[in-house]
Every structure is written in structure tokens, then in C-alpha cells.
Design a protein around this nucleic acid. Sequence first.
DNA 1: TGTTGCATGTAAGGGGTTACATGATTGA
DNA 2: TCAATCATGTAACCCCTTACATGCAACA
Lengths: 190, 190
Amino acid sequence: MTLRHALLALLGERPQTGYELTHRLRGTVSLFWTAQHSQIYPELAAMEADGLLTHDAAPGPGPREKKTYALTGAGRASLRDWLASPTRRRPPKDELTLKAYAASSGDPSVMARHFRDQAEQSRRQLEELAGERAKLEANPAHTDPTQPQFGWYLSLMRGITAQQAYGDWCDWVAERLEQAGSTPAGGSRR
Amino acid sequence: MTLRHALLALLGERPQTGYELTHRLRGTVSLFWTAQHSQIYPELAAMEADGLLTHDAAPGPGPREKKTYALTGAGRASLRDWLASPTRRRPPKDELTLKAYAASSGDPSVMARHFRDQAEQSRRQLEELAGERAKLEANPAHTDPTQPQFGWYLSLMRGITAQQAYGDWCDWVAERLEQAGSTPAGGSRR
DNA sequence: TGTTGCATGTAAGGGGTTACATGATTGA
DNA sequence: TCAATCATGTAACCCCTTACATGCAACA
């Protein structure tokens, strides 16, 4: 139940609606956590039932009320507990690395193009992230550990360094595959 | 249904039992894909029903037969198709980065220790991976694109570079948090 | 008039983890 | 005798994605 912690983390900054939370989990936050609105709305209701949240209702644009959720004391305590608790790292699932693992079963030149594409995509995303970084660094709040921008900056840098490593690896793999593709298959010995 | 592709990738090297596959998905392969036996056995049965696999049965140690699965022609074709198909990268979920994001809601010095621990753990795992790397590099097959060791090497290097970037980031975060912890909270202005 | 944004909800189904269940052989 | 390794299977439950469903306001 880590979605719960993600929502506590986001609501720790300020009260928000499910709609806002959904959009934040598609923006920069999506670099390390994602969720659909269909998951978020029921979870917010469950968290309120558990006493972690309360909401203010206002007439909404559609047929239903607009609900702005805020942390309760218990919610804030739960957030602090989670931040202090040990983190178990569960292994990421990366389909592209899996393909690299099975490289000997595929066509080297086709796969090389594949990895080049992925590297290219990675570079494009890095440019976007560099823009975000510049924005944050222009604001001195990103060095103040009591401001949310501090955490934003830390996690953005994770995104940038991870993306950098990923892109570099893709290029390296592509090179190895291209070398393999130019010398005829099975060209070593047999 | 990517578990299916992972199993195709592993069986592409040689025929194996569900038990062997389970253990490989806990060793080096776990760096980029994992699965439990409770997931694997039914999937192998489903793949056989779909004509991708066949099995040889032998008397097993327990009450049931031991089944060694091998790719059929269709299985091998499916593996090649997958390798040539575009990969959609789905965002990884990283709880530690989420905690960094929420850093302003926590105690800097407690969190700093947390990130130091994680960096330490990362370094220990890197040592293990370096051992694996040395083993592979001692075997010249790791440069031959027709040998499974070629793919093993590619994916192992992904694990190493990713782990390196992760550990470095953890250390960097810890430093920032330690600086914050030494100067009294809210020490900028107000 | 048609699309985008705001705003909330439910349902179906796939994927994954944890736990239950069985039983022989080997080594401490 | 007790634990670990080999070996396969099922059941319950949680998490997540995709799709269905509603309806107002603003803008092109």
C-alpha cells in the first residue's frame, strides 16, 4: 500500500483534489511514481475512512461535488512514520534490459536500431528535465529543507542522473550490437 | 504479459524446468525481472497450451513429475518477434525517491542516515556485481553475439551502471540532508 | 458544433505476492 | 533428527490498467 504514502507525500504540501493529485502523478512525479484516477479516488475515500484525511466539499463542474482533501493530525503522523521507516527496494522491471539479455536470440542490426531509438528518446527527455532543473535552481527555495521545492529538487536530480545512465547504456549496447552486425554472424569460431 | 517474454528469453538458451527458471529469476536476472514460482508454473502450462513450448516428463523427487520445457518453432518465432517489436518504457516506481520528494515533511538527520544506509547497501551489491563481471570477462564468449553470455554481459553492465548512479545519488542526497540537519531548521530566512 | 479541461465515480480483468500443500533425498 | 534442496502445484488477496459513465464551462 504505497500509493497511500505517495498521496500523503503530495498532500503534505497543501490540500488538493483527487483531480489535482492525478495530474501531479502524470507530471514530474511520474518519474518515480504513477497512478490512475481510478485508483486514487477510492484510495482517498479509504484514507478518510481510516482517519488520515478530511475533505471540504464545494459544488463541482459536473454532477458530483468537488472534494478538497487535507491531512489530519493522524495523517501527518503517518507521513512522518513512513519517512522514518526503512525502505525495501524492490527490483525494477525493465523490458529493454530483458531484451538485451536475450540479444543472442535476435538480429543484431535490428536490435541496434532499437537501442539507438531508445537512447534518442532518453536524450529528448533529458532536455525537458534540464528545463525543470533550471526553473527550480532559479528559485532559492530549493536549498531550504523546510520548503517542498527542496524535495522536488532532490527527486528531479534522481530522474536526471538515472536517465543519463540509461541513455549512455543504450548507446553503449547499440555500439556493441553494430560491431556484431558488421562482422558476419557467428564470425568468431564454432 | 511480459512474464511470457521473460520465460521465452530464458528458455531460448536451453530447455529448463520451472524450478530452474524460478531460481534464475532470483539471481542476476532479478536485476531487471522477477517472478515467483506460483506465477511461473501456470504460465508455462498456458504457454504450452498456446503451442510455444513442449515438455519432457521424468519422475521427480516429490509426488509430481519433473517437467523440462523447451521452445517449439512457434516459441522461437515468438521470441524473435518480441525482440524486434518496439519497447514501451513504463515508469519505474521507486519508494526511496518518493521519500526524497517528501523530504520537507521529515526530520533531515533521520532521513540522511536512511540515505547513507541505502548508499552503503548499494556499494555492497556493486561489489557482488563486479565479481560477476570479472567472471564473464574471463570468458571470451561474452564478446560473441551468438552466445548467451553476450546478452548476459550487456544486461549485467546495465545493472552495474544503474546501481552506480543510484548509490551516487543516495550519497549526494545524504550530504544535502546533513547540511540541512546541522544548521537549525528553517535557517534561511522567514 | 465539436473539442478540451474540470471533476468524480465504478467495473472488469490482468499481473503479482504471500501463503498453503505435498514429499523424496542429502548433509549437518 | 532437523534443515535445506529439489520439485510442482493451488488459493486468496492486493495492486494496477483500461474502459465505461456523467455532465458543465470555455474556447475554437
